[in-house]
C-alpha cells in the first residue's frame, strides 16, 4: 500500500510537467492549428530563465585573500556577490536563495516575448502549409534554440537548487499512520504539483470566465464565423501563443530544482508531451491535463520493480502502449472533439 501511494505521488509531479507542456501544446494546436515541435524548447528556455537569474544574482566581484592560495599557488581570489555587498549578506543571500521562485517574475515577460516573436516571425508563415511542413520547421527551430542555449551555457547540467526552506522531504507515512521514513516526498515536488494545479486552474479560468477567453474558445470552435463578426481573432490567437509559451516556460522554471537543467531537457519532454496531447485528444485542454496526470502515474507504476520483473522493459513502453490502446478504442483520444485533424 505504501509503495502504491509513493508511486502515485511520483506520478503526480511527473504528470504535472507533462500536463503543463501538453496544455500549451494543445492550446496552440486548438487555436492556431499548428503542430508546434518547438514547444519543448520553450520549456527549456523557461528553465534557463531561472539559470540566468540565478547567475545574474550571483554576479560577483573579486577580492584577494593573501592567507589562501588558488590551484596555481597564487593568492586566492575570493568572490563576493554584488547583491550581498549592496543589500547585506542576509537579504542578498535570501535573494540568491530564492532565485528560482523569483525567476517566475522574470520568465513571464521573457516567455511571452519569445512566444510572440516565434509566432509572428516564423510560425505564422506556415499556417496554411501542411502539418508536415509545420513539424519540420518547428523541429528545426527547436534544434536551433537548444544549440544556442548550449553555446551560451555549455552542455553540462547546471545546478539550480530550490530555496533552503523547501529542501528536504515531507513524511507522508507518519501523517497516514505508516512507519516513519517509508512514504517521504520532497517538498519541492509538492510545490511543483501545487504550482501546476494553480497554473492549470488559472488558464481554464481565463478561458472560461473572461470575455477574451470566450472569444478564443469561440474562435477555436469556428474561426471563420468569429472573423465574420469583425473580431480580429488572429491577434487573440497570437496572444494565446504567448500565453502557451509562458505556461511552458513557467513549467521549466519550477522544474529546475528537480533536475539540473541542460540544453537537451526540452527534447526529453517533447515526444512524451505529444503522446499526452494525442491521448487526451487533439485540441482538448481538459484531455491534455487528464492524460498528463494519467500517463505520469502509469509511467511511475511501470517503474516499480515488481511490475518490471513481470514484464521487463515495460517502464519504457507503457506510455506508448496506452496510447495505442486508447487510439484503437477511442480514435479521437480521451476527450477529443469531432472534426479536429479529420477530413
Amino acid at each position: 500500500m505504501d509503495a502504491i501511494l509513493l508511486q502515485i505521488l511520483n506520478g503526480l509531479d511527473k504528470g504535472s510537467a507533462y500536463a503543463l507542456i501538453a496544455l500549451g501544446l494543445t492550446l496552440i494546436f486548438g487555436t492556431l492549428g499548428v503542430v508546434n515541435f518547438a514547444h519543448g524548447a520553450l520549456f527549456m528556455i523557461g528553465a534557463f530563465c531561472a539559470v540566468t537569474l540565478s547567475k545574474f544574482l550571483t554576479l560577483s566581484f573579486e577580492t584577494v585573500d593573501p592567507t589562501k592560495t588558488d590551484f596555481l599557488g597564487q593568492p586566492l581570489k575570493v568572490k563576493t556577490p554584488y547583491v550581498e555587498a549592496w543589500f547585506g549578506p542576509d537579504f542578498g543571500g535570501a535573494l540568491i536563495d530564492w532565485a528560482v521562485p523569483l525567476s517566475i517574475l522574470f520568465a513571464i515577460p521573457v516567455m511571452i516575448t519569445v512566444g510572440f516573436v516565434m509566432e509572428r516571425g516564423l510560425i505564422k508563415h506556415f499556417y496554411k502549409r501542411p502539418h508536415a511542413d509545420q513539424i519540420l520547421v518547428t523541429f528545426g527551430l527547436a534544434i536551433v534554440l537548444q544549440e544556442i542555449i548550449k553555446q551560451v551555457y555549455g552542455a553540462n547540467p547546471i545546478p539550480t537548487p530550490a530555496p533552503d526552506a523547501f529542501r528536504g522531504s515531507f513524511d507522508f507515512g507518519v501523517l497516514l499512520g505508516f512507519d516513519p521514513s517509508v512514504i517521504i516526498y520532497p517538498y519541492w515536488r509538492l510545490v511543483y504539483f501545487l504550482f501546476a494545479a494553480v497554473i492549470i486552474g488559472a488558464v481554464f479560468a481565463f478561458l472560461q470566465f473572461t470575455t477574451f477567453g470566450m472569444v478564443v474558445r469561440a474562435g477555436m470552435a469556428d474561426r471563420e464565423t468569429v472573423g465574420l463578426l469583425g473580431i480580429n481573432i488572429d491577434r487573440r490567437f497570437t496572444i494565446m501563443f504567448g500565453i502557451a509559451a509562458a505556461v511552458a516556460g513557467l513549467a521549466g522554471v519550477m522544474y529546475t530544482p528537480i533536475n539540473s537543467p541542460n540544453y537537451h531537457m526540452g527534447m526529453d519532454f517533447l515526444v512524451l508531451s505529444f503522446v499526452v496531447v494525442v491521448v487526451g485528444g487533439m485540441g482538448s485542454l481538459p484531455g491534455a491535463v487528464a492524460a498528463g496526470f494519467l500517463l505520469g502515474i502509469l509511467e511511475s507504476f511501470a517503474s516499480m520493480n515488481e511490475i518490471k520483473s513481470l514484464i521487463p522493459g515495460i517502464d519504457q513502453i507503457i506510455i506508448y502502449l496506452v496510447a495505442i490502446v486508447i487510439l484503437l478504442t477511442r480514435p479521437r483520444g480521451l476527450m477529443g472533439r469531432k472534426g479536429v485533424m479529420e477530413d
Binding site: Q7, K14, V182, I184, R189, S300, S303
Partner: peptide, 8 residues
Amino acid sequence: SAYITPIL
C-alpha cells in the same frame, strides 16, 4: 524518482 522510491 520512480527508481529511487522503491529503495525506500
